Amino acid sequence: MSVDEVRTAIDHLTADEMLKLHLIERRLLGGTGMSKGDLVHEAICKALLGARQWPRNEPVMACIVMTMKSLASHARDTERSAQEAEPEVALMTPPVTPTPDASLAQSDRKAAIEAINAALTGDEEAQLVLLGWADSLRGKPLRDLVGCDQAALDYAIKRVRQKAMILYPDGCPL
């Protein structure tokens, strides 16, 4: 697509499509060090500046989301590299007891898991997904825990996310 075609496509995004982009962004921000709105803004800027080549046959929404995923991945890698670059500092500092904020965040996370689990009563697959996530399981280990194929796992994950979005419209503390 040419830059003019991209500009026209972006100008024609509906309010619902922009809302979807911001909801997707919310999920992608974790561990990036970026603020709310940064991913959407940067993805659109890259498109308008011609820094990304977009295939004509791909919907603009899909291209923006893929750009956002790429940007978030690169930001996470940068954050990880920055943390790994200072190992001596980590070794020299004494162990820190959890701050009240950290304890509160952990209790918020636990309360969120319990609330979502209660909302999923009767949906065993979705509850197993939630329990697996609480134990940091992803991919094959999560599939093995739930006992289903990838398609069924994806659908169970979708149900968990839908309940989480209903219970926590401003972002889930998980």
Rank of each mutant, 00 (worst) to 15 (best):
G30C: 00
G31I: 09
G31D: 09
G33W: 05
S35G: 06
K36T: 12
V40M: 03
V40C: 10
V40A: 10
E42G: 00
A43K: 00
C45T: 12
K46A: 11
L49W: 04
G50H: 07
A51H: 10
A51N: 07
R52E: 13
Q53T: 11
R56E: 13
N57T: 14
E58M: 14
P59C: 07
P59G: 02
A62G: 10
A62T: 15
C63S: 08
M68R: 07
K69N: 11
L71K: 09
L71G: 00
L71D: 01
L71E: 08
S73N: 09
S73T: 11
H74D: 15
A75L: 08
D77R: 14
T78I: 06
E79W: 07
S81C: 01
S81G: 15
A82G: 13
Q83R: 12
E84M: 11
E88Y: 10
V89F: 11
L91Q: 11
L91P: 03
M92R: 14
T99D: 01
A102W: 02
A102K: 10
S103L: 15
S103Q: 14
A105C: 00
A105M: 14
Q106L: 15
S107T: 14
D108H: 14
D108Q: 15
D108I: 01
D108S: 06
R109M: 10
K110N: 09
E114M: 06
I116D: 08
N117F: 11
N117E: 13
A118D: 15
D123S: 02
E125K: 09
A126Q: 03
A126P: 05
L128A: 04
L128I: 04
L128R: 07
V129I: 07
V129A: 04
G132I: 04
G132L: 10
W133D: 04
A134F: 08
A134Q: 14
S136A: 15
S136D: 15
L137H: 03
R138V: 12
K140R: 13
K140N: 03
P141G: 06
R143T: 07
R143E: 14
V146S: 00
V146Y: 02
G147N: 01
C148I: 03
D149N: 15
D149C: 06
A151I: 11
A151L: 08
A152D: 11
D154C: 07
D154M: 02
A156M: 02
A156T: 02
I157M: 11
K158W: 08
R159S: 09
